[in-house]
């Protein structure tokens, strides 16, 4: 590959500066701040803070509630990731087989992509409305008295459904383009080698989609962990009460509702470490495997 170079040293720095500045102001500075305040106990009225060392972390590890929320977050992430990827893959495979009217199907499936999380949450609220939500009525038809915001499991179900619904289009687009980048002749060769469509999918199509799938796996885990905040906040109408919540939502509730800045900072540091681990994992695996050509 040819490397293009700048003739002056200052131009590249100047061009990078706005981006670096944004990262510094909105990421590094708050991150450093969070790490710092996680070692302090804030006065609830904002009059001062005292150094408490690792107490905030010890509290977290000892808190039954925190562990419970962590467990729920894990389950939530697994479910959202699994169903978002699974459904999207199914839809992509079907859409890829469609020849006539393919464009309109694809456009319809991609629309949800443009919906912002809180809007998705709001649509979820409407769909699960206690008295006239169509999904509530559907649940009732099979004898399930669905109570969003009241029953823990029902609320959790709604959160998973809305989060999956919001994420499927993104995955769909990636899977579809992944499918379409598999050379036609490779699939035709498989058609001659294997009469079973299911066999062909698992032996040829799926492995060739693996790079896309792995990339999406990381994206989806990150989405389920962090980006579902808006959906959750809308679905519980800002009133967590006994409703399920994820670790990120807990950071917000403790920090801004409970004014426990120290504890909340400790929680964000835990999440930062999680993201870091995910990123390292991703880079490692991408370097190692899943490159075919």
């Amino acid at each position: 590959m040819k490397r293009a170079g700048f003739t002056t040293r200052w131009l590249p720095i100047l061009l990078l500066l706005p981006q670096l500045l944004i990262i510094a102001v909105f990421f590094y500075w708050p991150a450093v701040h969070a790490v710092q305040s996680s070692f302090f106990l804030q006065d609830p009225f904002g009059f001062g803070s005292s150094f408490v060392g690792l107490d905030n972390y010890r509290d977290l590890a000892g808190s039954g509630e925190y562990i419970k929320i962590a467990r729920f977050t894990l389950l939530f992430t697994v479910l959202v990731t699994f169903f978002s990827l699974g459904l999207a893959l199914l839809l992509a495979v079907k859409a890829d087989n469609v020849i006539r009217g393919a464009r309109s199907y694809r456009t319809l499936l991609m629309w949800v992509y443009a919906v912002a999380p809180p809007v998705a949450g709001f649509i979820g609220l409407l769909m699960f409305n206690q008295s006239w939500g169509p999904l509530t009525e559907m649940a009732r038809a099979i004898g399930w008295d669905f109570k969003l915001g009241v029953n823990f499991n029902d609320t959790a179900t709604a959160m998973v459904i809305v989060s999956v619904w919001k994420q499927v289009p993104v995955n769909f687009i990636f899977f579809l383009s992944g499918l379409q980048s598999i050379p036609k002749s490779v699939r035709e060769a498989a058609l001659i080698d294997n009469r079973s469509a299911v066999g062909r999918f698992w032996d040829v199509t799926f492995p060739l989609l693996a790079p896309t799938g792995f990339f999406l796996l990381i994206i989806n885990i990150t989405y389920a962990l962090f980006d579902t905040f808006g959906i959750i906040d809308t679905l519980v109408k800002g009133e967590p009460g006994n409703n399920p919540m994820t670790l990120v939502y807990k950071v917000y509730v403790d920090g801004f509702r409970g004014n426990d800045l120290g504890g909340s900072s400790a929680q964000s540091v835990v999440l930062m470490v999680l993201v870091l681990a995910l990123t390292v994992f991703q880079f490692r695996l991408i370097e190692r495997r899943i490159h075919y050509t």
Binding site: I192, R195, A210
Partner: peptide, 20 residues
């Protein structure tokens, strides 16, 4: 009859090998 059941083998222009 399905391609797999015609008892044929085909060699493609770009070889169409399974890359994985």
């Amino acid at each position: 009859v399905d391609p797999a059941d015609r008892d044929i083998a085909m060699v493609f222009q770009n070889y169409a090998l399974y890359p994985h």
